[in-house]
């Protein structure tokens, strides 16, 4: 029962961070600021959602197969945790090299 409540809490907070990432993707005025929102919000959202699912998967009982599946889910979370910042950095560098102008705060105050 405790595991179920914990997993529900984790999944709902994950969904909240997914939501802020998406709203940031829609609202921010410039490419680099959008990368700020998606690169962080998606990583933490996926991490929280996947750990919530892994915890729920254990709530039926600790058998060998369910523990294996939970370890696999946590490995996916670890992979996303490594891969998402790398992809964010690669795309930001490509944008800088391709001549997308960053919006500075002086431009915003006009």
């Amino acid at each position: 029962m405790i595991l179920t409540i914990l997993s529900v809490l984790l999944i709902i907070s994950g969904i909240f961070f997914f939501f802020t990432a998406t709203v940031g993707l829609l609202r921010f005025p410039d490419f680099y600021c959008r990368m700020q929102a998606t690169g962080k919000g998606d990583t933490l959202g996926a991490l929280l959602c996947l750990s919530g699912i892994a915890v729920y998967n254990l709530s039926d009982g600790f058998t060998l197969s369910s523990v294996l599946v939970s370890i696999k889910i946590m490995l996916i979370a670890f992979f996303i945790f490594i891969a998402n910042p790398t992809a964010t950095h690669a795309i930001t560098r490509a944008g800088l090299n391709a001549g997308v102008k960053p919006l500075m705060k002086e431009d915003l105050q006009k």
């Binding site: 802020t20 940031g24 500075m104």
Partner: peptide
């Protein structure tokens, strides 16, 4: 990371978006 996400969430959900981007 949790701190950073809360910071970004605050910036995103604030009606005026108080961002000051810089390199």
């Amino acid at each position: 990371i949790v701190l950073s996400n809360i910071h970004v969430a605050y910036l995103v959900l604030h009606p005026k978006m108080p961002i000051e981007p810089s390199m």
